[in-house]
Simulated assay, not measured.
Amino acid sequence: MKHSQSDATPRRMAFSMDDGVRLLGEAYGDAEKAGVLLAHGGGQTRYAWSRVAQRLGKAGWHALALDLRGHGESDWDKARNYTLERYGLDLAAVAASFSTPPVLVGASLGGNAGLLTAGRFAAGAIRALVLVDITPKLDQDGVDKVLGFMGRHLEDGFESYEEAAKAISDYLPERKGRQSNAESLARYLRPRPDGRLAWHWDPAFIIGRRSSRLQEDTVKSLESALAAIQVPILLVRGSNSELVNDESVSHFLELAPHAAFRDVTGAGHMIVGDRNDVFAEMLDDFLGSL
């Protein structure tokens, strides 16, 4: 069945991985058009891309926002395989479902996984790569801060949406005045049997990541994958990012000198949430240059 690029209602899509894990996603636009695959960051869901995906669909792209394994409505992995390599293989499998090689847009976790997809697992199946505030080398203090927040409420959860909103506000004080409401948080939280609310991702994803130090072989794998990528690359950093500093960017551009780099003023690590319109315009410009 064909779908008009003007469709405002997303289409639910399901993908079965080779290990039995089922991934869910939402697509906008005509499936026969050029594609964009959107991979969110750790602890997020496909809804992080909703406005971007809808905008892309209206502009004539086939945009697919995916729930990564262990996140959102995708399956939790019974084997607890949440390695970057596994995420990279998942993205390669989903990319292969497009009619033509898609542009892969990955934020944080989705970006590092995308590096492996484009540089190791599916080099010929990716048209271009957009990395949102992620590089092989990161500011470890910033990573510790992110992982500390993600792990802080694993056991107790939240009594209410208001409590969760306050926790987010305390973690992101620069967003005061834009406090999350119950409707938006319902996409990121799920009710537990005890009546409390928990994040909409598998706790096993973060257990074992409380040490932020990536294994040296993992960093080398990411660096090797980046250096091998021949397709166009865009690195977008939040000017206030706590993870990607100037040294990270310089190291990235040494490995991929053909990559383009853009800073988003006034944004932190969560660029798409902080400055959605600015990011969308940068993405439009990059896609238009392909």
Rank of each mutant, 00 (worst) to 15 (best):
E174M: 15
A204Y: 00
F15T: 05
D170M: 14
A95R: 05
S160H: 05
S99A: 13
R12Y: 02
K145S: 09
N245I: 09
G25M: 05
L214I: 06
V105W: 04
R127F: 04
L89Q: 11
V21Y: 01
Q179E: 14
H153Q: 05
L226P: 00
L243A: 06
P102I: 08
Y87N: 00
E247H: 13
F121L: 10
G151C: 08
F15C: 03
G110Y: 00
G208Q: 09
L154I: 13
A182G: 03
Y28D: 01
R262W: 05
K58F: 12
K137D: 05
L287R: 04
D133K: 11
V236C: 02
P173M: 14
G266R: 12
Y82Q: 00
V36W: 03
R69Q: 01
L104C: 05
S250T: 12
D133G: 06
F252C: 08
A107V: 04
R120Q: 08
F261C: 07
G42H: 01
R192M: 09
F205D: 03
V21H: 03
G88Y: 04
L147E: 03
F15L: 09
N81C: 04
L147N: 11
K176V: 13
E183I: 13
A204M: 02
G288A: 15
D217Y: 14
N276E: 11
L116R: 07
L189E: 00
G288F: 12
D67R: 11
T135A: 15
P191A: 13
D7M: 07
R210M: 12
D75M: 10
S221L: 12
G43M: 06
G88D: 01
L172K: 14
E162K: 14
G43C: 10
R237K: 10
F98L: 13
A34N: 14
E223W: 07
A259G: 03
A48T: 13
F279C: 02
A228M: 07
R190P: 01
Q5A: 15
F15Y: 15
G288S: 15
Y171P: 01
G35D: 03
L154C: 03
Y82V: 02
A14N: 12
G273R: 08
S74H: 00
A227Y: 11
K33W: 08
N276G: 11
M150D: 02
E247W: 10
S4P: 04
E162N: 14
L24Y: 14
E162Y: 12
L147Q: 12
S16T: 11
L37M: 07
L104D: 00
A34K: 15
L84D: 00
A125F: 06
K2I: 12
G111K: 11
S239Q: 14
A198E: 10
D285A: 15
L154Q: 08
S169K: 14
D133C: 06
E26H: 07
G88A: 12
A107S: 10
S250D: 15
A63C: 09
K33F: 11
E174Q: 15
R237I: 08
W76T: 00
Y82S: 00
